[in-house]
Design a protein around this nucleic acid. Structure first.
Lengths: 191, 191
DNA sequence: GTATGCATGTAATTTGTTACATGATTGC
DNA sequence: GCAATCATGTAACAAATTACATGCATAC
């Protein structure tokens, strides 16, 4: 059973409890988004497809006149999900425009190298701060809203997100100073 | 001038000196690939498109009967490249299946949590090692082949790649031990 | 009564990989 | 003579975002 990127996150979230497409999108946006995004444009068609394949089953869960369909895993779907999680991870991709700019800065605009490094660090610092406040709000809402990410794995990924972004922020702050020294000493000429 | 992902890396590499599509693909694969990949299927059509747009200009550079076209930046192309590098970076995406598995492991297969964390760390350790050996070979070939990545920016991105992967490896090794403790203590019952 | 949020969906476009095809040259 | 590498390209497919459309409910 080959699962595409969207299918993986759908099955993962549905495994915990029946959920609607809309709900999954909210969950993704406040949790996995940093390492596994998903858009409505793929979520809804993929839910239909997974239902056709017999991995999930939808049922009407309208609330006060508002249409709503929640899906749950079928036996086949749970098997597919468990099989997926025990198989070796394959996808690891990133696209980081800040790094690319740093990479080409020497050729295109050497004077701005330290600045680019500093900006890159600042962006990571901002993400770390964002994740930290997310962590606080998740912890605060844990009692009322346990349906939101509440297990060891999601705690770990959030902690990891904070740790890595702090690391990156530090690294590039130091690099910026370093580059400022070697590329354009403030009071002396180039060595 | 809106540049797509492939255009950015093409202009960046061409800025340093005239290059062929084939050559750029080699360069990408041994440098930016870790944060900015590109495939032949996009490189060749995009080179044509950039030429039509007047950002680059191709010229015949066949070597001993083997057809070859190298491209260089036009004035317009250089302006676009410099403008790009001084604009704030936008794209920052990642897709990490290991993190996603960790995220859902509690729901789908809690016993394997520590193992998943350990595997994730091991993968980063492997990448760090790979990048370290790449760094050595780049350093070793610097004299004969200066056309390969030889500036402060590319050194920085390579160093960064090594540092971050080592950090991730450490973090997940520690996390794996931590999870092994809290989820399945070897000789005691759950606390 | 109006803006926001809940809820579902589709169309258009872009992007990207993979696999294949072609053919020459160089090193063994 | 054969494999590897240089070199360019295209077709088929998969994936993803963005923008749009619809409509009801709730809070102000």
């Amino acid at each position: 059973m080959k699962l595409n990127a969207t299918a993986k996150v759908l099955l993962g979230f549905i495994a915990a409890r029946p959920r609607s497409g809309y709900e999954i999108k909210q969950l993704v946006d406040l949790s996995t988004r940093f390492f596994w995004a998903a858009s409505y444009g793929r979520i809804y068609p993929e839910l239909k497809r997974l239902e056709r394949e017999g991995l999930i089953e939808g049922s009407d869960a309208s609330r006060s006149g508002r249409n709503r369909t929640v899906y749950e895993l079928t036996t086949k779907g749970r098997e597919a999900a468990v099989e997926w999680i025990s198989s070796p991870p394959e996808i690891y991709e990133m696209r980081d425009e800040g790094l690319l700019k740093l990479f080409f800065a020497e050729t295109l605009d050497p004077a701005r190298l330290p600045e680019i490094a500093r900006e890159h660090g600042a962006r990571s610092a901002a993400i770390a701060a964002q994740l930290s406040s997310l962590k606080e709000s998740v912890a605060a809402s844990k009692d009322e809203a346990p349906e939101y990410t509440d297990d060891a794995g999601s705690d770990a990924t959030l902690d990891f997100g904070i740790a890595i972004n702090e690391f990156v922020a530090d690294w590039f702050e130091r690099k910026a100073l370093d580059l400022a020294d070697t590329t354009a000493p403030p009071t002396k000429e180039k060595a």
